[in-house]
């Protein structure tokens, strides 16, 4: 086809239009599966962080990660010591900050079985009680901030009475759940 201005513009516009429609259709088709996947991920994380003998879970977040937002979900024993932490969202540096998602990483180990309310919530470099990840001080600080956030939300929640539900509902705040075994 000759490269006249009219031809070029028409062809380019039609291709773009068709492409957008096609992609839009696929997007619409995958909206539900994707939402389901994300809900599942959270539900699974929730199940993993709460101790089998019963406890609480609370979400916390920080926007001060090296690559942006860090979101995690913290599971507490009834005496508000930490049982387990799972990272939900992070875009930290692979190999450095992303270590926070690994099992037995230094941050998790610093928090396990400790009560955040009785800790100095900062990295050792800043005079705190938490061991930072090697070469990822900014990521570590954000992680700590997020744990503190989760603890704060939990404390706020203790005041009100929440219904215990069979199906775990995760809100943006804290969730009280008992694991029925």
């Amino acid at each position: 086809m000759k490269s006249t201005l009219k031809n070029m513009v028409t062809v380019l516009l039609s291709i773009t239009l068709l492409a957008s429609l096609g992609v839009g259709a696929v997007n619409w088709l995958t909206l539900e599966p994707i939402a389901r996947v994300q809900a599942n991920a959270e539900r699974e994380a929730l199940a993993r962080v709460v101790p089998a003998s019963g406890g609480f879970a609370s979400k916390g977040a920080s926007d001060n990660g090296y690559g942006g937002r860090v979101e995690l979900i913290v599971g507490f024993h009834p005496d508000t010591t930490i049982y387990h932490i799972e990272v939900l969202t992070q875009t930290e540096t692979p190999g450095l900050g992303t270590v926070m998602t690994e099992e037995e990483n230094l941050l998790l180990r610093s928090f396990r079985r400790r009560n955040p309310g009785e800790m100095k919530l900062s990295v050792r470099k800043d005079g705190g009680d938490v061991d930072a990840l090697t070469g990822a001080t900014v990521s570590s600080r954000a992680y700590i901030e997020a744990v503190g956030d989760a603890y704060n939300r939990l404390s706020k929640m203790e005041g009100s009475e929440e219904q215990v539900e069979q199906d775990i509902e995760v809100h943006s705040g804290a969730t009280k759940t008992h694991n029925d075994e």
Binding site: M1, K2, S3, N7, M8, L12, I15, A19, V23, T30
Partner: peptide, 25 residues
């Protein structure tokens, strides 16, 4: 149907669309 002068942008649109489709899937 692709005029010669716009073939690279045209190819790019096609490729980008399929990439987005694969991404979503």
């Amino acid at each position: 149907w692709i005029p010669d002068k716009v073939r690279i942008p045209a190819f790019i649109v096609v490729i980008a669309s399929f990439v987005t489709v694969i991404e979503l899937l």
